[in-house]
Design a protein around this nucleic acid. Structure first.
Lengths: 295, 295
DNA sequence: CTCGGGCGATAACCTGCAGGCATGGCCGAG
DNA sequence: CTCGGCCATGCCTGCAGGTTATCGCCCGAG
């Protein structure tokens, strides 16, 4: 039925990543001929060529690319299954929450307090992580829930619930011509240089990242804004209070930013995840009444 | 690294579903002792008990339940990987679109026309499917894109883009006291009997299904509404034009319904999927200017 | 109470294939 | 022309994963 073994996928992925049978074999701790044979076996079974080998170099075919992408997903799913199963059995369960350092809009403590009040609360392990791999942590079972920031994070493949909606503000140097306006529109910002966020791959930063200088965190951004090198468009709570030298002005027609609690699909059935999500929603609604479920 | 082979997952899932080693073995076309051994091996490797066997019956532990759920996901991911790889290699690719019969708000033909105009358009294979398995088709690689209906379908684990937003209308019998009102609120409907949709599992129908009679399709629903047995809350385009004997009244505070185009996460990189999605969005914006991307 | 039958575990054995090693063939660099 | 890097081939071995036979437990029928 499933026609592809986990190990075979690992092999193909390794070769696809290294584009070199020898190195891939080394990484997999097996001999190179075994790897060659395994890959050919897979190609034969699928009836598709995965690599073009020219004895001087190895290249991916379209099919190989597909298996690389989807194979990684599948491997993530498998190891997530193993991981979660192991944890479901062992005692002393902890809930692993992953989030971006800073910028939780003051929600985190409220959420943790609300969760601690749940009857079946467990110890919460907090895991900070860069933008690139928060989602991967969830997918591969290394974390149970995440606080994510839409539209900055990519929700593909996750279940989520909105905790709060925030308007977006333009962050401008104090002396900027637009800084005195009470409200802006996106068009007003068309000429501004926007920063490029470090570690955010382009396909996630669709439209948010500019071509300006690379910044790693908010503090860096402020310095650059203060000297007039860039402007930015951020959720209000990130810029509150505004440091000296920068001002923020609401942008009426920017899509609002949302903080969401996300979890791997299907996991809402898990009591740990379920009760945390419920607590988070409760905390958010108390904290910020206009949040709406099923947004 | 991955610590669990596809086959082992299949075995555990089979046992978990049958709760009977003999039948599971039969289903898997292997002998029962082999299955017993394999399952024990997995339990040992994960260090977790998956089943409690009492020689008269087999029961799932919490860990077993976890592996059942996540294992199914993982198996879907694996076979999706195999399937998509095979298709990426073979020529004569077709794009497989899955949707609910009826109720496409007239969008389908516009989308297909727009897609046919794309430079790299392929033949489109249309697959109709019940509400329960549309999403599964995507996850297991049996379809490439889907038209789904939020909040009726469950978007967990999928990437999507909104095509259009529709207000919800209450469907009432012609003589109903509320039928003459120009607009309703959810509270007005609190006393009405809502139908239960056939084949929609309860955890998907969160809040939409009532406790009333079971209906399988829209036509059945109309008959029941006409005789005053139920009322319903549907997207406008589904009730347009309203058949004899029923009227529809906008409900101001019902969350709006959306038609979205959805695809498996990561697949937007695939040219087939990407260009279809682009065409769909274009068609929808032309057809219905207020649709907004990144909603 | 006993007997029989259903079910999972265990034991003993068999076999195909995954993986190891040595080698061959190809090709580009120098 | 030769050398060296790299993938493919051929042959060998061990074990994973299958089979059949059998046991032991439990429950329900009589």
């Amino acid at each position: 039925m499933a026609e592809l073994e986990t190990r075979e996928i690992e092999y193909v992925v390794a070769v696809a990543e290294e584009l070199h049978f020898g190195r891939a074999a080394q990484r997999l701790r097996i001999a190179q001929p075994a790897l060659s044979k395994a890959v050919r076996r897979v190609e034969k079974r699928l009836g598709v060529q995965l690599f073009v080998r020219s004895s001087r170099q190895v290249a991916l075919t379209a099919a190989g690319g597909a298996l690389l992408r989807h194979g990684r997903y599948a491997l993530d799913a498998v190891s997530a299954a193993a991981d979660r199963t192991r944890r479901a059995g062992g005692a002393g369960q902890r809930l692993r929450l992953v989030l971006k350092p800073g910028g939780d809009a003051g929600l985190l403590s409220a959420i943790l307090a609300a969760y601690a009040g749940e009857p079946d609360a467990h110890r919460v392990e907090i895991l900070f992580s860069g933008p690139a791999d928060r989602v991967d942590h969830l997918r591969a079972g290394r974390a149970d829930v995440a606080l994510l920031y839409v539209p900055f994070d990519d929700l593909d493949g996750l279940a989520h619930e909105t905790l709060c909606v925030e308007e977006r503000v333009a962050v401008l140097p104090a002396g900027h011509p637009l800084a005195s306006r009470g409200e802006l529109r996106l068009a007003d910002l068309a000429d501004e240089t926007l920063p490029r966020w470090k570690d955010v791959p382009d396909d996630i930063a669709r439209g948010h990242g500019g071509s300006g200088p690379e910044v790693a965190d908010i503090a860096q951004l402020y310095s650059l804004v203060a000297v007039g090198r860039v402007a930015a468009l951020l959720p209000r709570s990130l810029v509150h209070p505004a440091p000296a030298g920068v001002v923020c002005v609401p942008v009426a027609d920017a899509p609002p930013s949302r903080i969401v609690v996300a979890w791997p699909p299907g996991e809402e059935a898990h009591p740990l995840v379920g009760s945390f999500v419920r607590a988070a929603i409760a905390a958010a609604t108390a904290h910020n009444p206009q949040a709406d479920p099923h947004g």
